[in-house]
Write a protein that binds this DNA or RNA. Sequence first.
DNA 1: AGAGGTTACGGGCAGCGTAAGGATC
DNA 2: GATCCTTACGCTGCCCGTAACCTCT
Lengths: 310, 310
Amino acid sequence: MPDLRSLEVFYWVARLKSFRRASEKLNTTQPAVSQRIAGLEQELGVRLFDRASRGVSLTGKGLELLSYAERMLLLRTEMMAALAEPAALSGVVRVGVAETIVHMWLSRFVERVHAVYPSVTLDIDVDISPNLRDALVAHEIDLAFLLGPVSDPRMANAELARYPLAFAARPDFPLPPDPVPVSALIATPIITYPRTTRPYLALKDLLTRADLPPPRLYPNASLSTIVRMTLDGIGVSVIPPVVIARELEEGLLRLVRSEVDLPDLVFTATYPVAPDNMLARALAEIARTIAAENHAETASVIRQSYRKGS
Amino acid sequence: MPDLRSLEVFYWVARLKSFRRASEKLNTTQPAVSQRIAGLEQELGVRLFDRASRGVSLTGKGLELLSYAERMLLLRTEMMAALAEPAALSGVVRVGVAETIVHMWLSRFVERVHAVYPSVTLDIDVDISPNLRDALVAHEIDLAFLLGPVSDPRMANAELARYPLAFAARPDFPLPPDPVPVSALIATPIITYPRTTRPYLALKDLLTRADLPPPRLYPNASLSTIVRMTLDGIGVSVIPPVVIARELEEGLLRLVRSEVDLPDLVFTATYPVAPDNMLARALAEIARTIAAENHAETASVIRQSYRKGS
DNA sequence: AGAGGTTACGGGCAGCGTAAGGATC
DNA sequence: GATCCTTACGCTGCCCGTAACCTCT
């Protein structure tokens, strides 16, 4: 009788339409997948895949089996979530994280996860949101904390928090008095998120006027470098104030009011909808809690900084 | 992650409330069961059974798991039934058979099963119906063809056929002309089914009258011996005419009409309702077909015999 | 003492990974 | 020749069975 492992392998081959990709997803080798599928086909006496030169596709029987496999894997996942002791859950979860999150609460998240699921290992991958999104759809990571919901139907999004964006500068950085007009901002180097990200695109849109020269945007893939450059007086930065709470507190940076209405940064926990990603869902829930806690803690600091700046 | 084998072992321990009995049901050893349950408890980090000196009982978590285990095993069974090639199904099915069935169509049943499910092995156990019923509830057999439905809620019954009972005797056996009165029957040795069976009890009931001496019933556990004894003129037998179709055909025996209204023998295919007995259900269905074919073939012979006898 | 479950230990086999093979573009 | 799946083969580790042990009645 087929066991769940075989059905799991089958499920991923069916979904990824490739033995090789399934083997990668399952952290095993391609021949191992081949064997499992061959075994399954023999046990059932049925051909499950049509092997074409380019990729494989399900046969009719295979399609039927897929529905059973999905239901059984889902049932097992539910079962584990319902009655396994959290401490007994183990495994590796590959998490992709936008750098902003690292600066805000990632370490607390890791601690909390370790406390609740001591046998779970986190593989953490810090990258910009567009890359994380690609990694998600390619099943290279199991969970991501990134900018904005991913609008793929196979992805589940849970909003973590909205962080306002703001202009920040050294207190002695030469600027007209608040609120700073767009014309002045365009003349000033603005350091911010990398070229392919949402905030960069939004900013470029807001500051591009047909009648004025293009803005001087300095995209930067490293948030701490953005902060460093701002501290060094190279320009004004556009970042969420929560990231520079300490610098604001100590008066090393100030928030700058302007005529421009910057959009909020919306971070979501995003993970693929699959019958075996219970841990991803559970970790997303933990992230939501941590993000909420963090938000409550930092809110007052930010309000205070705006008062100082004006 | 727990596999289906562990859940299957768990299911049977839970149902039979004993490690040892589960090991017997699963054709394995008791320590193997112990280990599997221990492994399952460790994987989930949860105690599943309370081990008392006399038997084991489910804990709360165990009860929860049982529901999942049942659903998953049922799903697997459905899956196999839905899309496995019959030739790929293999296993041993222990079948208990009432002797009457052996004389009627058992060999054809075995052939048919072998043709449809070449990899299935049948373990055939011939015994009287009350013993078969006990074996069923004790899970010593997976399927039985026996007399009358078994009214246990955990058993599924499928009616195979109704065979009329009749009195049969040697043509030269001294009897009053048909219809033979009860008084004559009581004075005659009557050879029939064993003491604990339905037909014996029914017959005893019908022939016991307060005003007459008790009937002379010769119970016999072997149907062929009953026939032999009847052929030898030891007495009148009460058996289904279909069993002696050949003897009737050849004029070695005749059917005797009487004032007594003998009940029909109702044979059913009976099997325990369990999430893993798909084969039992499939074989019961085959049996139903075979019984119907047999009924059609023999009906005319029987009608003819009554005409000869009268 | 006997029934029932656990622990200890040795052997067999399933399933994995490495490596070579074959088909199709 | 590149890509992708299959076949061959040796090895590891799991799981089973035997046997000894523990506990409760």
